[in-house]
Design a binder for these strands. Sequence first.
DNA 1: TATGAATGAGAATTCATTCAT
DNA 2: GATGAATGAATTCTCATTCAT
Lengths: 210, 210, 210, 210
Amino acid sequence: MSAQKKLTRAEQKALRPAQILDAAFEEFVRNGFTATRVEDIADRVGVTKGTVYVYFETKEQLFEAMISHFSVAFHELLDNTDRLDGSVTDRLKAILGLLYDQIVEDRITRELLRLVISEGHRFPDLIDRHHDQFIAPIIAKIEDLMREGMSSGEFRQMPVEFSDIVVAPILTTTILRLIFDDRRARTPNKDAFMRAYFDLLLNGLLVRRS
Amino acid sequence: MSAQKKLTRAEQKALRPAQILDAAFEEFVRNGFTATRVEDIADRVGVTKGTVYVYFETKEQLFEAMISHFSVAFHELLDNTDRLDGSVTDRLKAILGLLYDQIVEDRITRELLRLVISEGHRFPDLIDRHHDQFIAPIIAKIEDLMREGMSSGEFRQMPVEFSDIVVAPILTTTILRLIFDDRRARTPNKDAFMRAYFDLLLNGLLVRRS
Amino acid sequence: MSAQKKLTRAEQKALRPAQILDAAFEEFVRNGFTATRVEDIADRVGVTKGTVYVYFETKEQLFEAMISHFSVAFHELLDNTDRLDGSVTDRLKAILGLLYDQIVEDRITRELLRLVISEGHRFPDLIDRHHDQFIAPIIAKIEDLMREGMSSGEFRQMPVEFSDIVVAPILTTTILRLIFDDRRARTPNKDAFMRAYFDLLLNGLLVRRS
Amino acid sequence: MSAQKKLTRAEQKALRPAQILDAAFEEFVRNGFTATRVEDIADRVGVTKGTVYVYFETKEQLFEAMISHFSVAFHELLDNTDRLDGSVTDRLKAILGLLYDQIVEDRITRELLRLVISEGHRFPDLIDRHHDQFIAPIIAKIEDLMREGMSSGEFRQMPVEFSDIVVAPILTTTILRLIFDDRRARTPNKDAFMRAYFDLLLNGLLVRRS
DNA sequence: TATGAATGAGAATTCATTCAT
DNA sequence: GATGAATGAATTCTCATTCAT
């Protein structure tokens, strides 16, 4: 607390941009780009409209800066996946577990996805960046694993270009949460969900006839 | 063309609401609720702002009317699923095929989903209606089939409450199409996709060890 | 009632203008000129906007026609005053009694006064007509009686140009009723009011010292 | 003039609300509530529409604020009446003289009365406030004096509930001025008017028979 | 005559943005 | 840097008026 108090004016100011970006995230997520008022963002920080314009030239630039600011977390995720070991199955499970944490349970990633879906038309390079930074690397990683599993004889042969299917339950869970939020109790228990997910993914629906 | 010309006032009038709803769909989908101007909708129909207000009291009511108007298609789908026969597997495949057509390939359903995601905060009963009319019946249908398959010995035992997982590839494909639209060639060939989807769903990733 | 029923279409139509003027009176009185919508007038009659325009070219003309239509009653009053007889005091009392009926108790005259006060700026000749038809003749009549009373020795000598003072209680009562309408119980009992009014007017406040 | 120039932003700002209220008074009085455009008020101040909305949330609130702002003068009048002395007649004369100044000659009070009459339907609590702050205290004051005069033997016995009659010439003069404004030379010379008014009020019309 | 769909000129209100302090 | 008064362009919604039927 005294640390809180010791903030010099200069330190205060150094924090401003981050505070504004945080506030912008909340407001843009709640209302979308057009329906968000710069003044609401300022109010949330406790400053006036003018102050926002000290740091960001326009509402559009603020939006884009906010998206960039909150799009960093994924890098760590992707880094982590490189350090895994064990069987292909083990590594696939580990990656999907990390993805679950990042996509389903991390509110920021989830809401960023909402903005990608709703504001994509207005900010087309948002889409491109999102694709290049998030979607493509994940898909590539999954495809690599599938290829590896197939050549090692662990996985059955199947076309690798549909690896969306493998991660689909994670994206779907996120989307349902985005839609129903906390209004409908749709959020599953992670462990139970992952167990059912892996079981189905690895073994399929059908009873195996020996 | 002469037919076009022959339209009487009365006929014109009977057409207006549908014309406006069509235009509203396009504009709301493109820009979202707030960023859509009533005048753009009017322009698209070829009338003036005032005319829109002859038929719809406010922009909000127009939005809601538009959603209702375009939310009808699903009923047929659900009706059709009742008439299927064959093994549980056959019927599951058939249903998932119908869902694919309705959710992935039907542009209206797809874009309605975008609006549910982006405007849900502003129109909360939109969410509720969407849940009750679309999500819940589908989930129920899938759960029924899974239960049937398990008790007939066709499917392995698994918890029925995660049947989202079964339809996830379809929702995921739709979401990716919503995001990348036609800007990235992500739209899969339906047959190849369905083949891979069913194969994975029914048999799983793992090689069966006899 | 059968008379009601027997109205031919032609008779119906002959009634239209009067119906519209009645409705216009109510709406203009309630809302003033600008805030009254032609459609509300039409609704009150049970026809559509267009019909009003069949009979009256513009909203302004309708307003003026309505004023003229309801400004007729006064003529009778003024005619009646010519037929009075008795002492000057008797005739003055009789005239003031008639004025009370006409100005305080007749809703139409009262509300017309409201419109004169509120819409005078917009319709300046409304003022002129009102002055020439209502105010001036009454004042003249009172002045005549005062002159007559003074020369007959019945009344004390006093300047005749302030005869407004003589009728003031009547106008004041009307104004208070216009303002407080039926929301405050300010409407006096006529007989008691007139008795007090005449007593004060004729004898004054002061005790007479013989 | 250089004073004009020296106005700092802060000083400007402190003045704005009053400037806007003044302008609002003029425009609302000229056109009534509905027919007054916010832009006209702004123009009169020399600012833009938006500026008016910086200070007042809606046109209705501006109207109400304006009424409140200009309804203060009466308090002084009522205070002054408490400090009078002399005979009941003297004090009655003094009060009526003050009322004349306030109601007939003060343009603001006069025009406020017009708004009370014309906008009463739309702003019902305007009426209530006007009654409680203006009408009721005056009537009460006059009634007190009449009671005092009657018990002191100065005035004849008469019902006190019609004291409206006593002030009627003042209200009537105001109303006539509101209606005919400066278009008809109806404004009386105050001294002559008051002399005639008091003479009639105190002594009545009739010649006294010793 | 009567209708009511359509118009288009406003009018209230909002809000991103600017700028003097 | 921070403020917040002021702007002005944009947007929703209204309504008198027209006109084909």
